[in-house]
Simulated assay, not measured.
Amino acid sequence: MKAVVLMLVIGFSITDVKGAESQLDEHADNDKCLLSALKRANSEQTVAELQKICTDKVPTLFKRRVELEKQASKNRFAIIPHKPNYVLPASVTSINQEPYMDTAVASELDDVEIKFQVSLKYLFTQDLIFKDLDVQFAFTTTSWWQAYNSEISAPFRETNYEPEVIFNYHHSWNLLGLPVEQTSLSFNHQSNGQTGQLSRSWNRIILGFTFAATDNVLWGFRTWYRLPETEKISDIDPSGDDNPDIEKYMGYGELGGLWSISDKHSLEFMFRNNLRSQNKGTIQLGWSFPINDRIQGYVEYFNGYGESLIYYNQHTQRLGIGFKLTNWL
């Protein structure tokens, strides 16, 4: 009997020790989270708000990004980054002349140009209808600039404009056993602002899911439905569908991922496929690395269809190097 009691006492003692160790580990994680949050906090944040970020469990990098965006948006004049903002001063490709054949610059385009992207959003309202459902307005512009081509007065060869209204749900939930960090539904317009034979545009409803594989690894997919447009009477008709076969090349969705190796190093990828017998695919790879405390270097490789709307049905391959002003996280 004494032996049984002794075994029970030892068992409970081991359990208590393990429980205490678990609590210590949890407190240590929370302390690390709080210290990290303090370093990133602005002058308006309270200690209670920072503690809330670190309760229950240490948040993922994605959750921290969401919280920082909400804190920044307390300033009603705040406009925050959406997609990465970057400049690639050395962007090398083999320019496909086909879309420009009947234009004055067709044979004068250089293979080396500058590619840059500006992407911003505004948090219009938080907790719409229920908690963690936000409404955002976003605008992204991506340009391919013949900056070194003085022979044709250094024109912007192509610029894509992408305004959208986004409904973001930040509450975590499980989809078929996978941890969803964010669910989004957006109304998206994308066009290149051109007329005549160079005009390209489409409107989509996009459903997206973001998953957290680990604290520093995110992946997700987006699927879209293209809103139908009327058929053009002729190529120069200003109304109607500029690119009726765009789904044959861009497909109906894409898969992406991000690995944040450290505070400054990250790897990313995007994969797209049309899932047809006449297979058309796309892959984009990116590497971000530190330059200083505010700017990251950035290398981007693209191979496939749809890098820009003018090339939605043309295969392109591009390598660019430059720097990022803001990253995904």
Results as ranks from 00 to 15, higher is better:
Leu285Asp: 00
Thr46Pro: 06
Tyr298Trp: 06
Gly306Arg: 00
Ser308Thr: 06
Val92Lys: 03
Leu6Gly: 07
Ile321Gln: 01
Phe77Ser: 08
Ile95Phe: 11
Phe269His: 04
Ser308Leu: 05
Leu34Met: 11
Pro244Ile: 08
Glu254Thr: 06
Gln126Met: 09
Arg272Gln: 09
Thr214Arg: 07
Met250Pro: 00
His170Pro: 07
Glu113Met: 05
Thr15Phe: 15
Thr214Cys: 05
Tyr312Asp: 00
Met101Gln: 15
Tyr86Asn: 02
Leu61Arg: 09
Val17Lys: 14
Gln182Met: 14
Pro290Tyr: 01
Ser43Arg: 14
Trp287Glu: 08
Leu185Arg: 11
Ser94Tyr: 08
Phe271Gly: 07
Gln146Lys: 02
Asn42Val: 07
Trp219Asp: 01
Ser186Glu: 06
Tyr305Glu: 03
Arg76Asn: 12
Leu50Gly: 00
Asn273Val: 04
Tyr86Arg: 02
Thr316Tyr: 03
Gly220Thr: 06
Lys32Gly: 13
Gln190Val: 10
Ala154Ser: 15
Asp56Phe: 09
Gln190Asp: 05
Asp263Arg: 10
Val112Arg: 08
Leu34Gln: 08
Phe271Leu: 14
Gly251Arg: 00
Thr195Cys: 02
Asn279Arg: 10
Lys232Asn: 08
Asp241Arg: 10
Asp242Cys: 11
Val47His: 08
Asp29Arg: 14
Glu164Phe: 10
Ile10Cys: 10
Arg65His: 14
Leu227Met: 13
His170Lys: 13
Met7Gln: 15
Pro228Leu: 10
Glu307Thr: 00
Glu69Phe: 11
